[in-house]
Design a protein around this nucleic acid. Structure first.
Lengths: 215, 215
DNA sequence: AGGCGAACTTACCACCGGTAACTTACCGGC
DNA sequence: GCCGGTAAGTTACCGGTGGTAAGTTCGCCT
């Protein structure tokens, strides 16, 4: 089998095993067995266990970037900012639903050596850059320095990631619910919910859009 | 040396080593050597490498909870909600500045087996509960179901944690800057920045409060 | 043909998490 | 005072896993 094809096959298997067992509990032997080859071949291609995870992460990163950016690009140019923003967040949650094992890789961060950890961190800085760019086009934010936009972007992806993890144990929370939650939190702001007395109207009409966990 | 004292000593050393090297690269031998004992003693006390990390995390969790809750309790009862909220977030960032190695433990999450991972996850659910309780007292949010409050809490914690990690590589961003950033993001909402034309006044007066990364 | 490189394997090492068995020292009761 | 039990701590070891060296097969190009 040619190298490129074998590499792709190994990556697919490795992603599944890493997601299933976690980094530490994954043995190179198991990955090799599932692929149908032996350990040294994988070492020849990826160098080390860390290198294998790193390659998996690279693949997942490319996929995630493609998913969110294309969702964002698909919006018509005259769409309201809020809708554009929401579509990107929605794409993030949809991606996780469809690529659960890819998302699981991100949670393996602390497991690996510093070099690979930085690799995983790049998945976030990449998303951060995408979000920061989107924010930079928002009127009222164009004037803000890049460093500050970066900070806002971190807030957004932090919220997204945490909600995504939270959702793992709550199948009743749909991708739409999660999107509404993040939008309510970081776009409208929690404070804006507070100042609106619910007796004076739905606070941003969120209560009906996100189902509580217990129901 | 009595057990309790030895355990405390081991935990302090282990926290430092885990933070310094990461979970995987930390060997029980090194922890034992630095303490001045031998491996089996640590196994007798903590059971396993996972158990040792788990104990470290428990300690860090208790400290973090104490820091944030006490900051929150210290606010006078008639303080504005925004200020109460801000004080808790500020306490979080201050805690991380003072206990960098404790915070580093949280990032080791994926490194360990599922059982210990759940232990680390508890650090977040604990903070989530604190934040959710605070949110529950906010007028306009009291009526929301508990599951939804939880979701908001996740948004807040996710934003805080991500900004905290982001800050690790940016010493010029102070704890106050980080607090302002999170408050602007999740309390006021990014959308509220967008609708305010900067020419018509400072958007929430944030630009002057948070310094850009490059300056 | 022949050889040359890529794909792949067998056999092995070193290190580290974890354990069994033993030694030492303290402490309470007669 | 001495003696039994328990807690603190050690030496010596095992097994598994990441990682490697050397060899083998196979296809392809001249």
């Amino acid at each position: 089998m040619p190298r490129a094809q074998r590499e792709e096959q190994i990556l697919a298997v490795a992603e599944a095993v890493f997601a299933e067992r976690g980094y530490q509990a994954t043995t190179m032997e198991e990955v090799a067995d599932r692929v149908g080859v032996t350990k040294p071949l994988i070492y020849g291609y990826f160098g080390s266990k860390d290198g294998l995870l790193s390659a998996c992460v690279d693949r997942a990163r490319a996929q995630l970037r493609e998913a969110t950016v294309s969702a964002w690009d698909a919006m018509p140019g005259d769409a309201p900012l809020e809708a554009v923003f929401e579509s990107g967040i929605r794409a993030f949650f949809d991606f996780i639903d469809e690529h659960a094992s890819a998302f699981a890789l991100i949670q393996q961060e602390g497991a690996v050596a510093a070099s690979t950890s930085r690799d995983i961190e790049r998945i976030r800085t990449q998303q951060s850059a995408v979000v920061a760019e989107a924010l930079g086009r928002v009127p009222g934010l164009t004037a803000l320095p890049a460093g500050l936009l970066e900070g806002y972007a971190e807030v957004v992806i932090g919220a997204c990631e945490r909600v995504a993890v939270w959702r793992l144990g709550r199948p009743e929370v749909t991708a739409g619910d999660a999107t509404a939650l993040v939008m309510a939190g970081v776009w409208h702001g929690i404070g804006s919910l507070a100042v609106n007395d619910p007796a004076a109207g739905e606070p941003r009409s969120l209560a009906g859009r996100v189902r509580p966990a217990g129901s």
